[in-house]
Amino acid sequence: MPEERGTPAGPVHVEGEVVATKRVGAYRHLTLSAPGIPERFRAGGFVAVTVAGHVARRALWIHRVRASSAFGPTLDVVVEVRGSGTAWLAAQPVGTRIAVTGPLGRPFALPKDAVSCLLVGEGYAAAPLFPLAERLRERGCAVSLVVSAPDEAHLLSALEARRSARSVTVLTADGSVGQRGGVADHVDDLVRRSDADVVYAAGPAAVLRSAAGAAERAGAWSQVAVECPTPCGTGLCHGCPLPVVGEDGVDRVVRACTEGPVVRGDRVRWDALIPPRDPA
């Protein structure tokens, strides 16, 4: 994607601070002051944050940025407590200082023309699709958004997305809200109904794989945001292998944090990424 003129490029490493923290369903939404990051942000970018007492960093999708606020430039992240690092993050009060590096990674590529786009997000990983929906709408694209989760508590609120999306579909595995079922059950139908030219997906690998597959079957492009454990997030450690097929048709392993996290869905070697024993 060509760099927009005047937009500062590349990540920055800054000392941020928790300026707001709020529980929303199963998640903790944190607002961090992070000078330098909002003006560099493009949808699909992420931040690496430092967790007290840990060497490795934790990657979080950027959910929203504000160029200016009472606290200066800020960004929002959505944290799901999984292990010690996310538990620490979710427990931090306003005022905690946190080193933040970002925006990192390759963001979603935007179509040149005003095409029809289907955005599919599962759980907290739907976070980067909201700013993406706004960008796409600004370009005149018809945006259909699908937010999916195991249950209502893990659903990112799609209320505000209704402004940027022509249609919003909610899926829960237990049927507690919206349609019952997962992305795999509905995605072919959703691609057809939205007449999508591009499918954007964010979530666990299995969700990305079904979205990419549905796009391919319908002759659409896909862009998937892959989460691989990223020890540093900055491309320095080569610790986040993502198996892909290169433009030249040759199998490669790239760094998910640097050559990804967003890649074309038809380029991912899903069988290598999702080991057969993994039930996901």
Binding site: H54, V55, A56, C228, P229, P231, C237, H238, G239, C240, P241, D251, R252, V253
Partner: peptide, 30 residues
């Protein structure tokens, strides 16, 4: 990073895991 005569794609994941006070890695010299 270590350069070998022929290209190497590196080892399978997980290549780096966290332990108290450090990291254990087997990146495989990609």
């Amino acid at each position: 990073r270590s350069i070998t005569l022929d290209a190497r794609s590196g080892g399978p994941g997980p290549r780096v895991v966290e332990v108290p006070g450090g990291l254990v890695n087997a990146v495989g010299l990609p």
